[in-house]
């Protein structure tokens, strides 16, 4: 009989990135093979439909609308996808007892949670990139069509100076595809990352995927609305003490998702300072660390 002492004495690091990566890759493969990327086809169809908006408006306004709807839909798809795919993973592993076989290998629970989170984030990142490219292509195409039409119209009657023509083109370009829009995609990614880690936290004590999805969406909506709704409620209730306290409790317990909606400003053409983006990254990291720790608190001694 061979002695197992060598295996028993093998070093067990506190966090093995290799294990995390193995689980993340497994999650990525799982989501790909579950055909979750099919939703990108729906998005592509939507973008084409949006790109064919024919509104009796100025090219600048039409482009602005196309851009807003495309990026708004992208943001919606990103967070919804983050919730659904995350909620499907852990409860499903538990229901299928796959978790038993994973955790009976030398895998720490934190590695499992991190692996699942990274897997989802990779998929969300890929999806957002594909959606961004689709939107970019559509907006650039429409922009070039509008510019060509405007140039033809303005040059034809010769009433406009070169400067006026340049100004008009600049106005259209301002509402068209700009590199800063990449930061709007990053904003959507950060929002999706926060809701993904919150969903992981919920799924550590949830009994089913459906429960996790419903509660996560509810938390997302509340987290998105509390800043907006609090002033509304406070006004409606004439500033009652109960409502004030309730608003405070909600604000403390639920993440402020509206803060992560700064993509809306970028899409409208506002300039975003990089320092602010850096701070949003830090805040996201804070949310990820804290919610992972809380998830671990629940998951560490969870019995299966």
């Amino acid at each position: 009989m061979s002695q197992p002492s060598a295996s028993l004495n093998r070093k067990a690091p506190l966090l093995s990135l290799r294990t995390v990566w193995t689980i993340a890759r497994g999650t990525l493969t799982q989501l790909i093979r579950m055909r979750t990327f099919y939703f990108l086809l729906a998005f592509a169809g939507l973008v084409v439909a949006i790109g064919n908006f024919n509104i009796p408006e100025t090219p600048a306004k039409e482009l602005s609308m196309i851009k807003k709807v495309s990026f708004g839909t992208m943001d919606l798809f990103a967070w919804l996808f983050a919730i659904v795919s995350t909620a499907l993973l852990i409860p499903r592993d538990l229901e299928d007892r796959t978790l038993y076989t994973i955790l009976s290998k030398p895998v720490r629970r934190v590695e499992y949670l991190l692996g699942k989170l990274f897997g989802v984030l990779i998929v969300v990142g890929i999806s957002l990139t594909v959606m961004y490219l689709l939107c970019g292509f559509m907006i650039s195409f429409r922009e070039s069509v509008y510019i060509a039409e405007e140039l033809a119209a303005m040059e034809k009657d010769g009433r406009y100076s070169n400067k006026e023509i340049r100004d008009q083109i600049a106005l259209i370009s301002k509402h068209g595809m700009r590199p800063e829009l990449g930061i709007a995609v990053i904003a959507s990614f950060l929002k999706a990352a926060v809701i993904a880690v919150v969903t992981i936290f919920l799924s550590t004590f949830a009994s089913s995927s459906l429960f996790t999805i419903i509660i996560s969406i509810l938390i997302f909506l509340i987290g998105h609305a509390h800043n907006m709704a609090s002033s509304f409620w406070l006004h409606q209730s004439d500033g009652s003490m109960f409502v004030q306290q309730l608003v405070k409790v909600v604000k403390i317990l639920i993440p402020d998702f509206q803060l992560f909606s700064f993509s809306e400003g970028i899409v409208l053409g506002e300039v975003v300072p990089y320092a602010l983006v850096g701070q949003m990254f830090l805040l996201t990291a804070g949310y990820i660390i804290v919610f992972l720790l809380l998830s671990l608190l629940v998951f560490a001694d969870k019995e299966f």
């Binding site: 800043n227 803060l259 700064f262 400003g265 602010l276």
Partner: peptide
């Protein structure tokens, strides 16, 4: 844990909100 994190992040988030609104990246509530 949730409360502690909520209390810690609140001032930071308020500051960030102010900056984002100032930069016109975030819309004030309707």
């Amino acid at each position: 844990g949730l409360v502690a994190f909520g209390v810690l992040r609140a001032p930071w988030e308020n500051r960030l909100r102010e900056q984002l609104v100032k930069q016109r990246l975030l819309l004030p509530p309707p």
